[in-house]
């Protein structure tokens, strides 16, 4: 296992030689590094949230302290936002095909269709229509 995750990518912290980048400015909000070609790199920091911004892009990082979870993200149908389940199109043990709309949830007055990531059979449905759901909870499980 690599020791750092940045924006879902596992990265080896030792991949680069830190001494190739020297600190020339460091504050709570900002870090400026200079590389061995004398090019400056400016970072804006939000350390309490483990984030930094570089060239206008946001990077979230964390150290991998124990083995990351086993599941493949693509196989989980999780709620992207807190919201409400509007309609469920499938029932338990139903055969579904990849791309089929399984349920529709609403968040911020917009509808989001949750689709099957692969062909499979509905193993469990964790909610019913009109139920409120939190963000990032599993909605449906396929097998």
């Amino acid at each position: 296992m690599k020791n750092l995750t940045i924006n879902k990518n596992e990265v080896d912290l030792n991949k680069i030689i830190t001494s190739d980048f020297k600190i020339i400015f460091s504050s709570e909000d900002k870090l400026i590094l200079i590389d061995k070609d004398s090019i400056e790199h400016c970072f804006y920091l939000n350390s309490s949230n483990n984030e930094l911004s570089y060239n206008g892009k946001l990077y979230k990082y964390k150290k991998n302290v124990r083995s990351s979870k086993t599941g493949n993200d693509d196989h989980e149908m999780i709620s992207p936002m807190p919201g409400k389940i509007i309609k469920i199109f499938v029932s338990k043990d139903e055969k579904v095909s990849k791309g089929q709309t399984l349920l529709i949830m609403e968040a911020m007055k917009m509808e989001h269709a949750i689709k099957a990531p692969f062909d499979g059979i509905v193993e469990s449905i964790f909610f019913t229509e009109n139920q409120q759901v939190e963000a990032e909870v599993e909605l449906i499980k396929l097998k």
Partner: peptide
């Protein structure tokens, strides 16, 4: 589409942040 490669300076910055912390 988000680019999947993380620039080296970002990794260096995170290294430094952990050291500073």
């Amino acid at each position: 589409k988000v680019g999947s490669d993380i620039p080296d300076p970002v990794i260096a910055a995170i290294q430094h942040i952990y050291k500073i912390d």
